[in-house]
Each structure stands twice: as structure tokens, then as C-alpha cells.
Design a protein around this nucleic acid. Structure first.
Lengths: 346, 346
DNA sequence: TGTTAGCACTCAATCCGATAGAGTGCTAAC
DNA sequence: GTTAGCACTCTATCGGATTGAGTGCTAACA
């Protein structure tokens, strides 16, 4: 069987480029004119037959042109693609946003999602940074009624969690004060992971001369700290995918939009991206993303690191024939912009 | 011109019922068999011609049956419709949810939206209760670093707002303590509206012997209290509308889904529903809802009142030919269930 | 006067065949 | 190895015929 020589690569590249632009199967005559190879359509046809045999292109039916397979896309993003240079233009809008929404993480991320979606005309997914691994900066119990306490925990990055705990019986101000001091002394600066069961038991013993109540409060506090909320996911521009005919038929679009609505599996993807340890851009083509209804889509993901263990991910979802250069570029820009803006702020 | 006599009403009712079921234009022969009027199709035809003249039905083209106009739907929901009796069955699932998610308002409402959507097979919108008009139960300033204060405000209904304020210069613990006492003394039990500018000025004067800092802090606190966050909106089942062919074409569906994605105008609808003062069920048919892309939809809304001025709204969006009885019933059930569960909790 | 049977008519939907056009694979010549 | 040429395939599209549902109107009937 024939191999991928230089000419074949050039032809394949031309096919992919053309298909990315038009979304239509591309024929031999088009390539013959499009490239600077100066080959007749007949020659191209022979080469294309080989490329088909090698699994890089397929034709939807006999008398149509060829379209790239996932394998071709893979080759393209891995080695054929040329990086774009000018990226700054589009990011200007974002900088403004980052400054405006300073301090409000949720609004910031919502905006990031929105900017990404409108900039690219694809759908975007942004995951809020995980607070695991971040350190507790501040912790406070407050009495709000006879038998209710408000627990406020602030971790690095100024993310605040709060919860109300209901006690079986009243607790006096003095005990609360003591507890406050003790909890801050022992827990401050620790990460959520470091506060394990043994530690909690120790705390109880230290404070526990008093009674069961104290133990209960400590348990509740521990629960507040370690309660891992399901990861916040912000999406935008999901309806953009309706602009691409190959994704817009009722069934596919329904599945895809449902996936965006649920957000469950998007969180899974985000977790995966983050735990892969990869800090660069990752591209999932077709079924690689393992997301429901996304077998005709590509997903490009990036991570961001705001310091102090606060890492989140950003992703763009579009048709397989998306403008990979632009998307990867936009994501890179967003990544640096986010990280820079945040480090400046702290 | 002829009037709406009893027989015409019966025929109209039959047309509507049939259309709600099938979604297809309904012809005279169908009605002739469907009803117990024992009239020939010819007679029905005459009557239908009259009904068309009166504006209750139209035919999409000459040789098709008739479909109800918005006017007919209006008449139907206002007076023709029969209330269903058995409502409890479906609400069982909800009760469980309400108990499970106790205390976490956002999760609760997300679940409410989900249950409504899956129960009805339409799209649902839930607005979080507005905190305007609710009273401040607890307020606390905490020092988290030399020049940063954490403000925590809890209002009736245990909704907590917090924000970090950055001071120009350090503030000692003692001043913070004093401020805490003063703020609680003067602001506790007041509603956001009652804390007006004059009051703030007064507070500043009372505490202001010290310096500008105090004034700044008070200003910041006032801002936290009165910052009206944009209304939280939870939606679910937006993709359900793709199940209804009359809404599923690319353009319409795109507009509709975008409206759901933006949530902006949904908030407007919620505000409107709430400020109308109406506590019952309201039905918007077609363009009445004034929402983008919803001219072929009906929207049924209800409000809920959790006490203490905490009122929010719940809505169902579906095709005009939705099962109004079921939807209104489900909403009513949700309303009582929500209110009951919440009152029990407090 | 209200109801009904009958009939001509209209219009969307469907099917069918013809046609055009794009693109291929193969062969033979260069 | 490359290219021109040709037969072939398959889709998309268009027009015409057909079908069927449903209407409006008229005339007869109770």
C-alpha cells in the first residue's frame, strides 16, 4: 500500500482547507486549480483514491467529492496547521470585561463564556476554578438566633462559602467566641484536603470538655468546608451550533443542546481536562470528547491557573470543520489574559 | 353578522380539543363524528364558516381543515376549559425534592424547574424570590486582612449576601467591633427600601467622630445591601420544544432557545408577572408574552409567596396547543407545595 | 327555516420520470 | 508518471400527473 509522501500531504491539506471553508465535499478539479502543484484533476484523482485507501478522506457517495475523516483532522491539528500570528485584536474587548467585573468571579466567568462564544461563533464552556487545594484564609461562626449558627468560610482567591447550621439546643456567645478562635488557629492556612478526619477528631478532643454541642458544631463546620459543590459550569452560545447545517438537524441539535443544558457531562469533561495535567490546548475530535451528541463536533479545551491551586478550564465546541487556528488562538489569548488579570488583582 | 350561540361554542370547543390533541387542522367531517351533536358535516361546515368570520378559527389554505386563532385559545382558557381533578399523583416526586434540598435555595429552584419540565414535557422557568421588601436579620463585618473587610448580610428567608470591601488604610479591630454593634442596632429588622440615603447619612454622623474610613465602610455596606443583583433565573427543558414540529424549524427554535439562553428577557417577564399583583395563574397566548421568538408559544405563569416579602415566579413555556389544563394544574400544585414546604421549614 | 346530500372546485402532498451537473474510475496515449 | 477523454454513477431539481382531504355552494328535504 502506498505511503503518505509529501505530495499527498499537500493534497490532503488542500482538501481539508477547502472543506473547512465551504463545508462541501471537495472534488479533484477544485484541488487541481486551488493548489500550486500544477497537476491535472486526473492525477489528483489518483492521489485522492490513495488517500481514501489510507483512511484520510471519504466520499459520501459515488459522484460527490471527498471529505476529511477524523484521522485527517487529527493529522491537521497535530502537524499540518499553521499558527496564526495576529491575536490581540479580538482580545481587547475581553480586557475591558476583566477589569469591569473584578471581584465577582461568577460574573467574570459568565462574561468570559459570552465573549468566547460571540468571538468565535461557536459554543463555549467555562468551568469555575476548583477550590480544592486552596487554603482557608478566614473562618467565622456567628450566632443568628438561639439555635442557629452562620458559618462563613473564605478560601484563597476570596471565594466565600456559607451555610447555616441548626443546633439542637442554644449555645452561648462565649463558647462561640472560643470556637471561633480555636477553629481559626488550627484550620487557617490549611487546604481542604489537609483537614482530614483525624484532625477533626483532635479538634473535638481539644474543645470537647464542654459537651456534645461543640462536637456537633465542629462536625458541621467540617462538612461546610469539605462539601464539594458540583463544579460550576458557565456556557454561552449553545445556539450558535444551529448555524452549521451539518449539526442543525433536529435530532443531533436536540442531543447537543440537551448536553449543554444538563451541564453534568460538561463538568466531567472539565474535570478530565484539568486532571490530565496538560496546561496547553487540547483538541478532541468527534467521539474523542465522549460527550453525548457531540460525535460530529470538535471540542478545543484550555486550562487556566489563577494561582493558589485555583485551576479551571475553558472550552469551545463547534463543528468538526471549525476554524481550529482561530479557536486555539482565541483560547490561548483568553488563557493569558485571565491569568494576567487575576495575578495583577491579587 | 351571526353571534356565538351555544352550538357554535360546542363546535369551537370540539375544534380546539381536537387540535390540541393532534396538532393538525381539523375538518368538518371529524367534528361531525367527534361530537354528540349529531349534525352532518355540511351543517358543521356552515357553522365553521361563521366561526371563521367571527375570528375564532382560520384555515391555513383552502383545502385544509381549520385551526384555532389566539382569540379562540383565549376563550378556551378563560371559560371553555374544564379543570382537572386529579393533581396529586405527579406532585409526589416534588415533595421528596423539596425535603431533600432543604436550605439550599438555588438547588431547590433548579430542581423545581427540572421537575416541572420533565413532568410537562415543556420548558420551564423559575425565578428566585426577590429579596426586596425582606428584612435584614443579621449583618457582620469581619477583618480579613489589614485593609480588607468581609461584609456578610443575611435577610429574612436566610438568604445570604456577601462582599469584600477594600479600604484605603487599615482599620483596627475595636472600630470594627463598634461598627458591627452600631450597624446591627440600627439596621436590623429594616427592609432594603427603608434604608434610604437619609438614614445612611445619620449613621455616618453618629459614628463619624473618627474619620473618613468609617464613612467609607458605611457607604460600602449600604451598597452591599442595596446592590440589586440581576434576578436569578433557572430554566429547564428548553430543548423539549424541539419535540413540537410547529416550533422545531431552525429559525424559530433558534430564536426561542436563544431567549432561554440569555435569560434577560425571561427576567423581565418574571418581574412583570410579580408586579402585576396577580397571585393566581396567568396565561399569555402567542404574542401576549412579548418574548422574542415566542409568538407561536403560550406561556403560563404562577407566583409563589414564601412569606416575608419573598415572592418569585414559575412559568411553563410550550406550543400554543399545549395541554393547558395539565400545565395550570401542575403549576398550582407546585405553588402550594412550595409555599407549604417553605412555611413548614421556617 | 334549518338541515342535509351531492357535486364541483381548490390546494397541498406525493410520486414519477426526465434532465442536468458534478465527480469519479478507468483506459489509452503522451 | 502524467494527462486527456470517456463512460458511468449518483444526487438534486424540476414539471406534470395523481391523490385525497376538505371546502363552498346549490338544491332538495323535513
Amino acid at each position: 500500500m502506498s505511503q503518505l509522501d509529501e505530495r499527498k500531504v499537500k493534497i490532503l491539506q488542500a482538501v481539508i482547507r477547502n472543506y473547512l471553508e465551504t463545508g462541501e465535499p471537495v472534488g479533484s478539479r477544485t484541488i487541481s486549480k486551488y493548489t500550486d502543484l500544477n497537476l491535472s484533476s486526473a492525477t489528483i484523482r489518483n492521489e485522492m483514491a490513495d488517500l481514501e485507501e489510507l483512511g484520510y478522506i471519504v466520499s459520501p457517495h459515488t459522484s460527490a467529492g471527498r471529505i476529511p475523516t477524523d484521522m485527517a483532522y487529527r493529522l491537521y491539528v497535530d502537524s499540518l496547521m499553521e499558527e496564526k500570528v495576529e491575536r490581540d485584536r479580538e482580545m481587547e474587548a475581553l480586557k475591558g470585561l476583566l477589569i469591569e467585573t473584578e471581584g465577582k468571579m461568577d460574573k467574570l466567568l459568565k462574561n468570559v463564556a459570552k465573549v468566547l462564544a460571540t468571538n468565535t461563533n461557536y459554543a463555549s464552556i467555562v468551568s469555575a476554578p476548583q477550590i480544592k487545594g486552596t487554603r482557608i484564609k478566614f473562618l467565622q461562626l456567628s450566632r443568628i438566633s438561639d439555635d442557629q449558627l452562620l458559618v462563613v468560610v473564605m478560601v484563597e482567591g476570596n471565594v466565600i462559602k456559607n451555610n447555616i447550621i441548626t443546633l439542637g439546643q442554644p449555645l452561648d456567645e462565649e463558647s462561640i467566641l472560643k470556637l471561633n478562635i480555636m477553629l481559626n488557629t488550627y484550620l487557617n492556612g490549611l487546604t481542604v484536603e489537609e483537614i482530614n478526619l483525624g484532625m477533626i477528631a483532635g479538634l473535638k478532643a481539644k474543645a470537647g470538655g464542654h459537651s456534645d454541642i461543640i462536637a456537633n458544631v465542629i462536625d458541621a463546620v467540617a462538612q461546610v468546608i469539605s462539601a464539594d459543590e458540583d463544579m460550576e459550569i458557565y456556557t454561552s452560545g449553545a445556539t450558535n451550533i444551529l448555524k452549521y447545517p451539518e449539526l442543525a438537524d433536529k435530532e443531533k441539535a436536540g442531543e447537543l443542546l440537551s448536553t449543554f443544558e444538563e451541564k453534568q457531562s460538561l463538568a466531567r469533561l472539565a474535570t478530565e481536562t484539568l486532571s490530565s495535567g496538560e496546561t496547553g490546548i487540547q483538541v478532541y475530535i468527534g467521539e474523542e470528547s465522549q460527550l453525548n451528541g457531540m460525535k460530529d463536533c470538535s471540542v478545543v479545551t484550555a486550562t487556566y491557573d489563577l494561582g493558589g491551586g485555583m485551576r479551571g478550564s475553558v472550552a469551545i465546541v463547534g463543528p468538526k470543520r471549525m476554524d481550529y487556528e482561530k479557536v486555539m488562538d482565541t483560547l490561548k489569548g483568553m488563557q493569558t489574559e485571565l491569568e494576567r488579570a487575576y495575578n495583577k488583582k491579587e
